[in-house]
Amino acid sequence: MFKYVYRNDKLDEPVFRLFRGGVPTVEQLRAAAVDDAVTDELVALIRRLDESGALAELRRLAGGPPPGQPLGYAGPAFFHHWTDNDMVITGPGGGILIDVHTAIATNKTAQSRLWVWKLLTSAWLDTADAYRVRTVGLYFARQGALVTWPVDELADILLEGGDRDAAREEFRALAERLRTQEHPPRVTGPLKPGRHTIAVTAVVMNDRGRVLVARRRDTGRWKVPGGVLGLDEPIPAGLRRTVEEKTGVVVEPERLTGVYQDVGLGIVALVFRAHIADGEPAPTHASAAVDWWPADRVGTELGQVFAVNVRDALVAGQVAVRLHDGASLLSEEAALLAS
């Protein structure tokens, strides 16, 4: 149901509304199912996962975390959401990328080869090594069978002695060309959305004067933490939620330091100076890494817009109001021309 909502932008679906007020109970989720057959099959598949020993193997691969602790990440995104994978187990020796299949029969050679090649190429597409995938595998849910291979060994098997590194680089180059053809760079002018999106960002400093930053799992890019404000979500709550999703810490906003309008993408970002109220920065489902950077490094590596966000947050005074095109600051006149 969530996949349907995501792909069709049906934000009025009942299952989506369940989460507007918080996290629903199991009973509320089950009541949203179309009929009992849906949940009965899921219960049977979960029982098979446990009874077959596959769940115990997944826990072993994850390093044996205590009950109740997550084993990894669901729905990992590779190469700007081109590939649709199921989960990454975060093991002590690196990530294990696993795709789940509910096929009744697994003896169709052509289909099986596609499954295995997809695993290998998904690992290759993680060019930023955000998930540290060192092993890939298939889990056949109806049979309760889990099969895994080290990435390099699988590449050698599939390439039948070919040059693994050359094949990987050739594939990545091909994928980049195809993506460029599908989504060419914006060269004729900015996008013109029908309405603006509101984003919130927190500039958090430690006692050494360094800025909290996080590296996104989907793109591999470092960002000052924050995100898009939800519909009907209070601004302070949205700031706390998005920063916690990116860094694992709960922050409290101190003051609004700047309002920044991206005239190309139609995004208005509200930037706050904030401090950590609870928790320690750590990787999350959304961020592969979290770090503290000197303010000048933010400007050098993240670009002019983020540099100004941080600079404005460090200077006490009036709230800054600035326009930009995603890369450079613009005057009001230049922004009118760009739009």
Rank of each mutant, 00 (worst) to 15 (best):
N8I: 00
D12F: 04
P14D: 13
V15M: 12
R17G: 01
V26R: 15
Q28V: 01
R30T: 04
V34R: 15
D35N: 15
V38P: 08
E41Q: 12
E41T: 07
L45Q: 12
L45A: 04
L45F: 04
L49H: 14
D50S: 02
E51I: 01
L58A: 13
R59H: 10
A62S: 12
G64P: 10
P65L: 11
P67E: 13
Q69L: 00
G72N: 13
Y73I: 13
A77D: 13
D84N: 12
D86H: 11
M87E: 14
I89L: 15
G91M: 09
P92E: 04
G95T: 05
V100A: 14
T102C: 11
A103K: 15
A105G: 11
T106R: 15
A110P: 01
S112F: 10
W115I: 00
W115Q: 13
V116M: 12
L119N: 08
W124G: 02
W124R: 02
T127P: 00
V133C: 06
V136L: 11
L138N: 04
L138Y: 11
A141F: 10
V147L: 08
V151H: 11
A155F: 04
L159V: 02
E160W: 00
G161T: 07
A167G: 04
A175E: 03
E176D: 11
E176H: 06
E176M: 06
T180L: 06
Q181N: 07
P184N: 10
P185W: 09
G189S: 02
P190M: 02
L191C: 00
R195P: 00
R195V: 00
H196W: 10
I198A: 06
V204K: 15
G209K: 05
A214R: 08
A214L: 06
D218Q: 02
D218A: 07
T219Q: 07
W222I: 03
K223C: 02
V224T: 13
P225I: 03
G226Q: 12
G227I: 03
D232F: 08
P236G: 05
R240V: 07
R240G: 01
R241H: 12
E244G: 00
V251C: 06
V251G: 07
P253H: 09
T257Q: 09
G258C: 02
Y260D: 09
G266A: 02
G266K: 08
V271F: 08
R273V: 00
A274H: 06
A277E: 15
A277H: 07
D278Y: 08
P281I: 01
A282S: 13
P283A: 07
H285G: 00
A288Y: 04
D291C: 03
D291P: 05
T300G: 02
Q304E: 15
F306G: 00
V310I: 05
A313H: 14
V315K: 14
A316I: 01
A320P: 03
R322M: 01
R322C: 00
L323K: 11
D325T: 05
L329T: 03
L329Y: 04
L336S: 14
